[in-house]
Amino acid sequence: MVDYIKQLEEEQSKKENIEFAPGDTVEVHQKIIEGTRERVQVFKGVVIAKKHGGSKETFTVRKISKGVGIEKVFQLHSPNIVKIVTITKGKTRRAKLYYLRDRIGKTSKVKEKR
């Protein structure tokens, strides 16, 4: 029997290959609808986690804004995510970088991959 749910989820997934990993610094371009107006908001920060996989995949981006840590969870396959630009590749030893939440200053930086 055909796995119809798998088929539906594949249809939902974005076709183009979006490659980035935890530790990378990315720019997320998100479409925001305000009433009738549409604009694109850019959120730049470090990817600290990727979850769920498939059409349900989400990723968390963390940045420090005016001294306050901000995290935003995005749905990878949402039609509102216009594009994701990888700025730098990070070198990490684990998949979830939740330890960055407790770090301040220089120690909160992820090493760049060379």
Binding site: I5, L8, E9, K56, Q75, S78
Partner: peptide, 21 residues
């Protein structure tokens, strides 16, 4: 009943759905 998943609406809303054959 085949199971559940979710799909995106055109405005980006994620809708939980049950798939029925």
């Amino acid at each position: 009943k085949l199971g559940m998943t979710r799909i995106f609406a055109k405005n980006g809303e994620s809708i939980p759905v049950t798939v029925i054959l």
